[in-house]
């Protein structure tokens, strides 16, 4: 019994090391002064951070990604919230079909989904534009946003709304003072995670960006393919730092359990 649980623990820690290794390695590699990537770095320097923070290419791609992620998170959270309000309160013909179609982006293999989104953007002439990527990312992110919002609304006690209305509160006031505060943690979580998914997305985006419009992860990908300097490691580290800060703030706001739970719908 002893040895078996010892073996299990060793395996568990080994798996943890495996899972965290590439992330830790990227952080260490980002402090290399060398022109080309080598590990371990010969010495430590901030050369590539200076390079990245002084480069208009990197900052531009970063800006595009932030704007895109913000638009995507706002639109998808709002759209899915409105839909979830209806599907959690009304029974109607075609409801289960609708809920299945919301999950459709998860059922398509990523490469095929990317091609379908590309075909869409070619039709509406949105390839390589902020508007086009916005629509594409909203579709990609929709399943991840809809599920937690539905779960949040299901836990909400409709009796509270009824009580407020019985006491003479008009519907909009009830919504603002009763429903919205109760559902706020779900909304924040949905917003935060659609932001992160859009901000990190690369598989579909690489098909959708254009010469004049690119996102940060796509720029990282094309840089790895072209010159692969440690600048990529520096950008990646900054990116992770930003995401972690963001997640920490959000989990302080709504509780860490909810944050893990919402990502598990993958």
């Amino acid at each position: 019994m002893r040895t078996r649980s010892l073996v299990l623990s060793l395996f568990g820690y080994a798996a943890l090391v495996f899972i965290l290794a590439p992330i830790v390695i990227v952080v260490i590699a980002s402090f290399s002064p060398a022109r080309y990537m080598e590990f371990p770095p010969p010495s430590l320097s901030l050369r590539w951070y200076r390079e990245v923070l002084g480069s208009s290419d990197w900052l531009g791609a970063f800006g595009s990604s932030i704007v895109l992620a913000f638009c995507v998170a706002t639109a998808t959270t709002a759209a899915c919230f409105l839909a979830a309000l209806v599907t959690t309160r009304r029974r109607f013909v075609g409801k289960s079909l609708l809920e299945m179609l919301v999950q459709a982006p998860l059922l398509l293999p990523n490469a095929a989904l990317a091609m379908a989104l590309l075909a869409l953007l070619v039709q509406i002439k949105g390839r390589g534009t902020l508007g086009g990527l916005w629509i594409a990312h909203c579709i990609l992110v929709m399943p991840f946003v809809y599920r937690p919002l539905v779960n949040g609304l299901r836990q909400f006690d409709l009796g509270l709304e009824e009580a407020a209305m019985t006491l003479g509160s008009p519907p909009l006031r009830t919504f603002r003072l009763i429903t919205l505060p109760a559902i706020k943690p779900s909304l924040i979580t949905a917003f935060a995670f659609s932001f992160i998914i859009s901000f990190d997305e690369v598989t579909a985006s690489v098909f959708l960006v254009g010469v004049n419009y690119t996102t940060l992860p796509v720029k990282i990908l094309s840089d790895i393919q072209s010159d692969a300097t440690p600048a990529i490691a520096a950008v990646s580290t900054l990116l992770m730092l930003l995401t972690m800060t963001f997640v920490t703030i959000v989990s302080r706001m709504v509780g860490i359990g909810r944050v893990i739970g919402s990502r598990s719908g993958h």
Binding site: I19, L20, A21, P22, I23, I25, V26, A29, M37, F39, I196, F199, D200, E201, V202, T203, P217, I220, L221, I224, A228, I232, A233, S236, L239, M240, T243, M244, V247, R263, H266
Partner: peptide, 17 residues
């Protein structure tokens, strides 16, 4: 935690390893 890191960054990490 790695789910919060872009797959292009994680794949790059493996290239370094």
């Amino acid at each position: 935690m790695p789910l919060l890191v872009s797959i292009v960054v994680r794949t790059y990490g493996w290239m370094v390893i």
